[in-house]
Each structure stands twice: as structure tokens, then as C-alpha cells.
């Protein structure tokens, strides 16, 4: 049996650290705390964490710097804590390499769900080896480049498929508009967000049961999109 996952919390408020730690330890995670950016970088470097939780407002620098520090040498999943109205910060954090965010205030349930999903994802084999992704009656065969919904073939254009493939290979993860646009259309289209609106609309029409209330291709307003398998 593998040892319990190691989580590092970089957060300046003691009370928040306290309840996050309590919640995680109740699920038998190992938890280390850091109060500052500097301390966070040291902890992350020495403890080989399985997950890093970062608050964006730190006394000695932005949480985004912590994300950059960690991303410089590790692919460890990073969860960001931020307030609802600070969309810009969330996008910056995600673009800097964070994997997901949690909006303050949050309850234990939301925290643990998010942590579990992230650990599960990173435990899975690296990208590429997933040949087939299935969700809500849809099967996407990445190798054969086919999409089947309710046993009938769905026609998608090459660009639609590229977008779909990119989303389903990052399940649960928030992908910012900029990241998606760069990936699918190239850096010169990084600001053509209407491309995404149109193509996401088409994918939902083709693959969602209720396109206006999507279950799988979720909008993170002002930030990006998230694919949720189930």
C-alpha cells in the first residue's frame, strides 16, 4: 500500500490553514503548512508533495509566484484559493500553471471533492495513453478520431475534434480561453474568443443532452472551460 498523499498548504491566514488541515487530515492525508511564499517553495522542494494548495494573496508576494516557482521543476497538481470577484487573478494563476481553483468561502465538502479529483487525475497514466473517453452516452476514440453518441456516429470537423480531444484529455481541469485558443488555433488567435464560443456551442449541440444546461462541457465564466466526465 502506497503512503498517504502529501499535501502542502500555502496560506497566510492561520484559521483557514487550520480547518483545511483538519479537513484533509480527517481523510488521512499528510499535511504540511507554509505561511509565506518563501516557506512554501522550501516545503514544496523538500517534501515531494502530491498536491499544493495556494492562496493567491500572500504577504511576501503573490501566490502566482509560488505557482511559477513550483512549476519550474514539478508537474504536481496545484489548487488555487481565490475570491469570487477576482477573475483576472484566477486566469493569471491558471495561465501560470495552476490546475484548478476553489472560490472562497468554501466548505469541507467542496474542498475534499476538488482534492480527490485532482489526485485521481495525476495518479492516472500520463496523457496520450488514454485511448477512449466515454461520458454521458458519448465515446470519443482519440486514436481512431471518431465520435459516437448513442451508438451513432457524430460528424465533427477537424477543428471541433481537436478542441474536443484537448478538453477530454484534461478531465476536471479548467482550461483558460487563452490556453485553448493557443492550443487549437495557434498563438495568433489567442484573443479571438468568439472562435471558442462558436465551437463550444457546436460541440454542446452535438454532444450535450441539454446544450443550455451542459453537464460535461462546463463554462467557467470569465475564465475558461472545464470538461467533466460524469
Amino acid at each position: 500500500m502506497s503512503p498517504a498523499p502529501q499535501v502542502i498548504i500555502v496560506e497566510d491566514d492561520a484559521q483557514i490553514r487550520r480547518f483545511v488541515r483538519a479537513s484533509l487530515e480527517a481523510e488521512s492525508y499528510r499535511v504540511a503548512e507554509a505561511e509565506t511564499r518563501r516557506r512554501g517553495a522550501i516545503e514544496a522542494g523538500t517534501r515531494k508533495p502530491d498536491l499544493v494548495i495556494v492562496d493567491l494573496g500572500l504577504p511576501d508576494g503573490s501566490g502566482i509566484d509560488v505557482i511559477r516557482d513550483v512549476r519550474a521543476w514539478s508537474n504536481v497538481p496545484i489548487l488555487v484559493l481565490s475570491a469570487r470577484v477576482d477573475e483576472r487573478d484566477k486566469i493569471d494563476a491558471l495561465d501560470a500553471g495552476a490546475d484548478d481553483y476553489l472560490t472562497k468561502p468554501f466548505g469541507t465538502g467542496e474542498l475534499l471533492a476538488r482534492v480527490r479529483a485532482m489526485l485521481r487525475r495525476s495518479a492516472r497514466a500520463p496523457d496520450g495513453s488514454i485511448g477512449v473517453v466515454a461520458f454521458g452516452g458519448v465515446r470519443v476514440d482519440l486514436a481512431a478520431r471518431t465520435v459516437v453518441r448513442n451508438d451513432s456516429r457524430v460528424h465533427v470537423t477537424p477543428v471541433e475534434f481537436r478542441l474536443l480531444a484537448h478538453l477530454v484529455s484534461h478531465p476536471g481541469q479548467v482550461l483558460t480561453h487563452r490556453q485553448l485558443l493557443r492550443e487549437i488555433w495557434g498563438p495568433s488567435h489567442a484573443d479571438d474568443s468568439h472562435y471558442l464560443r462558436i465551437y463550444m456551442g457546436r460541440l454542446r449541440q452535438k454532444l450535450e443532452r441539454e446544450p443550455a444546461r451542459p453537464r460535461h462541457f462546463i463554462t467557467e465564466t470569465g475564465v475558461g472551460y472545464r470538461f467533466v466526465p460524469d
Partner: peptide, 16 residues
């Protein structure tokens, strides 16, 4: 920031 931080811990701690 000053209002949200204590509220966040309040929500979390009470939830816990």
C-alpha cells in the same frame, strides 16, 4: 481581503 478571509475560515471551521 480583510472581510473575506475571516468569513472563509468561519465557513470552513463551522462546516468542519
Amino acid at each position: 481581503h480583510d472581510l473575506r478571509t475571516p468569513l472563509t475560515s468561519l465557513v470552513g471551521l463551522a462546516d468542519r
